[in-house]
Design a protein around this nucleic acid. Sequence first.
DNA 1: ATGAAAGCGCTAACAC
DNA 2: GTGTTAGCGCTTTCAT
Lengths: 337, 337
Amino acid sequence: MRWQIVAARVTIKTIAKDLGISHMTVSRALSDNPNVQEETRKLVRKRAAELGYIKNAAATAMRGDGTRILGLLLPNIANEFYAKFANDLAWSCERLGFQLIIHLTGDDALAERKAVQQLREVQAKAVILVPAPIQNVEDAAAPQDFGGLDVVQLIRQRPVTGEETAIIVEDAGAICDAVVHLHGRGHREIAFIGASSALSSGRNRLKAFRAGLKKCGLKRSPALIRTAPPSFDMGAATTRDLLREGRATAIVCAGFEISNGSLNALLTEGRKPGRDLAFIGYGDPSFYTWIEGGISTISVPVTPLAEQVLQVLEGIATGKEQSSTFAFDAELIIRNS
Amino acid sequence: MRWQIVAARVTIKTIAKDLGISHMTVSRALSDNPNVQEETRKLVRKRAAELGYIKNAAATAMRGDGTRILGLLLPNIANEFYAKFANDLAWSCERLGFQLIIHLTGDDALAERKAVQQLREVQAKAVILVPAPIQNVEDAAAPQDFGGLDVVQLIRQRPVTGEETAIIVEDAGAICDAVVHLHGRGHREIAFIGASSALSSGRNRLKAFRAGLKKCGLKRSPALIRTAPPSFDMGAATTRDLLREGRATAIVCAGFEISNGSLNALLTEGRKPGRDLAFIGYGDPSFYTWIEGGISTISVPVTPLAEQVLQVLEGIATGKEQSSTFAFDAELIIRNS
DNA sequence: ATGAAAGCGCTAACAC
DNA sequence: GTGTTAGCGCTTTCAT
């Protein structure tokens, strides 16, 4: 026998015994089943509150009644975009009575697998994820098995069973617009800093940039196109290189981290974005609106994205789910460039 | 009878039947119990993988073996500080194999209660929370019951049972330093923008500011001390007021949102923080380091905080937990003011 | 309107 | 080394 130092958990049986009735009556009373006398119901609820009864979610889950758990898989939540998205989604979850489990993947396929596994273990209802980019053959050969999870893909779309809903942002138009705009302001040497072509987003954004060049009748200059694994440091270093070379008169950034890194390099080098050099950022850090007269940017619609996820979630909650792809347009916002 | 469209969940019994052995052997094999023949163990693991077996966390939880779930309660995660903290903590969770459930409270006591209730239902192991400020008598009268949850209070410390660990930041020294520093640079009209005294943090920071004034032999000017419910807009509006009045030559911000709002007002009004007016911000948005020659700030040690939480967590995980209060000093970082 | 039994998936405690 | 039993807390089903 083990001494119970802490009070044993209060269950419906505890209450039942305390009240001298069957635990089934307690169960019914607590779940507002009509087949209970109003009086008993009140009594039970009162006693339950007094004893500090807490429903055991595990028991409910085990009976096959599912859970109210949602999983969110993101590369990180330090990034302003992801943080804002997680924030919006978390509020929706509070409203709908869901619990939100956040897993960080660092864009690593293995981490993603582990997270999905854990979510399946707790029988999460759905998972919203930014799919990790497929880096090697193994990843491609062993597609993720989501089991009973409803899946919503975010930002990136991985060609899988085709069953999953995808919510993506369509930034090709805005990137193309950016080039056209810069051209209109007289720029002829427009640099592009983006992710390496290993990422589908990297390829697509570069394609959009080239489409913009073509539209203005500008010819491609390989020297002005810089791609590498995207990061703050990459954006900063690349920008410093471009400054040193002194050819570019405008920079278009195609990535959140890259954009911040590039802006950082510009400012720490004493260049005024919008004056000394035209600059088009990526994403919507709030300070873009109020530094240096406002930083022009390719604006990504976070809240609409989160709201769409919410819609899909509500569909899932009520069983009326239907899979499809939702695309939201990014928008070129011109401020100082 | 109901038609099973989807394949029935694979359990240890499924595997047992498939292999013609007892489900206990399967259980033992899967949990690396030594009392299984190496051969059978391998066989079981192989078959489990093939059949796509997923352990049912609910069943484990129901047996009283607990969960690997942690709860994190924050006012929001859009704020750079909270986002960074959540990010650090989430990484720790990945490393330790925990799942992190994030609940947003908006600093509302009722929302906090609901979140704690839900965490208790899923039998979370611990909850890390920024306690909602106590606004009214009801809140104070009905202290939160955390049941079996281990509790780590963050930033704010609510006097409760005294059992909980608290991890707080001690910013009084840095605030006082800020005043002394500004005085040393010749400023005599130093404004303070902070939270209303309803929040304990508001009171303490104001106290520290006054201590700074006293230390320099400056007398208090009520006209330069502005407190109200803290927000970005409050910071911006207050700053615009101060600019209009034209008396203050320096501003000390005592809050994350306030600081950003104030800085925003300054820049949109065309004032150069550090040149036209001395400015001491609060918190560590990354762009503070690289705009306007660097914004001076009261730096809050996020990563040490998260690391301490991690320490406590590991204590909890191994049962070697011991409650206490950990304080981390904020630090005055002078850049352009 | 209320109660008794069964079973969800798992593992500790016993057989053997 | 392997199998059997029992029970965690809950609700569905079937009595009463």
